[in-house]
C-alpha cells in the first residue's frame, strides 16, 4: 500500500468539489460554525418520519391479538407506550426544527465539518452494497466481497482503480481462507472455486 513515511496522496472523491475542502485540520478543535440552514429540510423529514412511525405503532398495536388468558398487562401495552414516546419525541423535534434549533452533529476524526454532504458517495456505496448482496449466491462470497471492497474504496477516492480491485480480491480470498476454510464459517466459495478444498466453508 502506501510507502512508509510518505504521506498518502490526497484522495478526491468523484463529484466532491475540491474548492470546498476547507481549511487545514489544525483548527479542528475550534467549535464548529453555526449549522447551515439548508440542512433543515432533511431534518424535518426525519422528525416527521419519527412521528409517523409512532402513529403507526399506536394504530397497529390495537390489532395485536390478545389471548383471553392474559390477566393484566397484555402484549399491547408496551407497544402503546413505545408508540406514544415516538410521537412525543417526533412532535417535539418537529417543533424544534421549525423553530430553527437543529441537531448538533458529533464530530469525528475523518469528518470534515466544512464540507457539504456528498450524496453521490452515499448513493453509490449503498448501490454497491446491494450489488454485493445479490452477487453472494451467484459468484461466491470472495468475489462479491472483492466487488464490495474495491467498489467502496474507489467511490471513497482510491486511485488507481485496479489497485483497489487487486486489494479487494486478495482480501476476499484471505477472509475466505481464514473464516471459511480455517474457522468453518459456511461462506459460499462460488462456482469458480467450488473444487478448492481449503476454501470450502
Amino acid at each position: 500500500m502506501t510507502p512508509d513515511g510518505a504521506a498518502p496522496e490526497a484522495p478526491i472523491a468523484p463529484g466532491a468539489p475540491t474548492d470546498e475542502a476547507g481549511p487545514p485540520p489544525s483548527d479542528a478543535l475550534e467549535p464548529r460554525a453555526a449549522q447551515k440552514p439548508r440542512r433543515r429540510w432533511g431534518e424535518l423529514v426525519l422528525a416527521l418520519a419519527t412521528t409517523a412511525l409512532g402513529t403507526y405503532v399506536l394504530v397497529a398495536a390495537g390489532s395485536i391479538t390478545v389471548p383471553g388468558s392474559t390477566n393484566t398487562l397484555g402484549p399491547r401495552a408496551f407497544p402503546y407506550l413505545v408508540g406514544g414516546m415516538l410521537v412525543v419525541a417526533g412532535v417535539v423535534l418537529v417543533v424544534l426544527v421549525l423553530s430553527g434549533r437543529g441537531g448538533e452533529e458529533e464530530g469525528g476524526e475523518d469528518v470534515d465539518p466544512n464540507v457539504r454532504t456528498d450524496w453521490l458517495t452515499v448513493v453509490l456505496i449503498v448501490a454497491i452494497l446491494v450489488v454485493h448482496v445479490f452477487a453472494i449466491n451467484v459468484i461466491g462470497w470472495p468475489f462479491a466481497a472483492a466487488i464490495l471492497f474495491a467498489g467502496a474504496a474507489v467511490v471513497l477516492g482510491a486511485r488507481p482503480w485496479w489497485r483497489a480491485a487487486v486489494a479487494g480480491l486478495v482480501l476476499g480470498l484471505i477472509i475466505q481462507v481464514i473464516f471459511g476454510g480455517l474457522l468453518g464459517l459456511s461462506l459460499p466459495a462460488g462456482p469458480l472455486l467450488e473444487g478448492v478444498p481449503f476454501l470450502r466453508g
Binding site: I125, L129, A152, L156, G157, A158, F179, L185, L187
Partner: peptide, 29 residues
Amino acid sequence: RIPRHYLYAGIILFGALGSYALNFSPVDV
C-alpha cells in the same frame, strides 16, 4: 496512516461479513 478509502471500505466489508455470517442469508445483509 491507513488510507481512509481503504479503511472505510474495509469497515463496510467486515460489517457485511458479520451480518451475512449470522444465518448465511443475503436478506440479513
